[in-house]
């Protein structure tokens, strides 16, 4: 399968496919995030019956310090469960999660969470929203203001500090949400389809902004998305998940050879091949079918044109 898919610079990260559980704490320390044999089972009530639903099973993942990892997967593959676990909002039934070698037991300010629905506090102004986490840290008011203004500038919203969320567009709200998550300086940024609710143009802009911010802040980013293009454009690696129960099918190294920030990256042949590859993985095409590049997939057609 791998052979068939290797085109040009594309390669499958062999180690990433089935990350081995690390045995020692020392090994864990080299990785920012380590997830070992995670599973999460939910009890769902169907009338009187209790049904068990396995959202995630036998899930292993290692993420390097400062890495940008995109995760794609079919609907209901447990992507959101995965982020909840990483955030510490729910606990795995088996396995452990380590961040910087420390076991995750609950939510904390070393992880920032950015959601699709922004989740800004509507009674707070923009600057007060950004300060929320800093207030929890009991930072002094003057210092809070300084930090909040700094991050407001980072997301390109200087001058909007005294606006209320209802005065902002969707894209601006998401910028504020990102600033809020970054302001308390977490090691890891967890992003759950953050750009899914904004229009296409704003989305592209936000993607480029996010890359710029990531380069500047050196955060580890776990980015969940439905868009394969987005996953490939943003991620250094793209993890493809299988559904019910959710686990990692494959992790692909993305090598775009072009500075991502330029919009040209998306036009390159590499980019489209990468997108195509992820698409195939998601839709369960086997390598042999793939060889001809002649199935009905929209991506397939597009790629043929490009190659031709």
């Amino acid at each position: 399968m791998a052979e068939a898919l290797v085109i040009g610079k594309i390669g499958i990260d062999g180690a990433g496919t089935k990350p081995l559980p690390s045995d020692t704490t020392l090994e864990r320390l080299n990785k920012n995030i380590v997830m070992e044999n995670i599973s999460r089972v939910y009890n769902i009530k169907h009338g009187r019956k209790n049904e068990r639903f396995t959202a995630i099973e036998n899930f292993n993942l290692e993420v390097r310090d400062g890495e940008f990892l995109s995760i794609v997967g079919p609907s209901g593959c447990g992507k959101s469960t995965l982020l909840d676990l990483l955030a510490g909002l729910s606990q795995p039934d088996t396995g452990s999660i380590f961040i910087d070698g420390k076991r995750v037991t609950g939510p904390a300010l070393n992880r920032g969470f950015v959601m699709q629905g922004y989740a800004l506090y509507p009674w707070r102004t923009v600057i007060k929203n950004i300060q929320f986490g800093l207030e929890l840290q009991k930072m002094k008011k003057k210092e809070r203001n300084r930090v909040a203004l700094e991050y407001l500038g980072l997301v390109g919203l200087s001058g909007f500090e005294n606006r209320y969320p209802y005065e902002l567009s969707g894209g601006m709200k998401q910028r504020v949400a990102i600033a809020r998550a970054l302001a308390y300086d977490p090691k890891v940024l967890l992003m759950d389809e953050p750009f899914a609710a904004v229009d296409a143009q704003t989305r592209e802009l936000l993607q480029e902004e996010l890359l710029r911010i990531w380069e500047k802040t050196h955060k580890t980013v776990i980015f969940i998305t439905h868009s394969i293009e987005e996953a490939v454009f943003l991620g250094q690696r793209v993890a493809v998940m299988t559904s019910s129960p959710g686990s990692i099918k494959e992790i692909i190294d993305v090598d775009l050879l072009v500075p991502r920030r330029s919009g040209d990256a998306k036009e390159s042949l590499h980019f489209n091949r990468m997108v195509h590859k992820v698409w195939n993985l998601l839709h369960n095409y086997s390598g042999k079918e793939d060889k001809s590049l002649r199935h009905e997939s929209a991506w397939g057609c597009r790629n043929i044109e490009k190659i031709g």
Partner: peptide, 20 residues
């Protein structure tokens, strides 16, 4: 979502009531 967002920052229940 507002509660989830606050909880993700490790907020305590009394502060959650006060601030959210």
């Amino acid at each position: 979502l507002l509660i989830k967002s606050a909880r993700s920052m490790g907020i305590s229940v009394p502060i959650l009531f006060q601030k959210v």
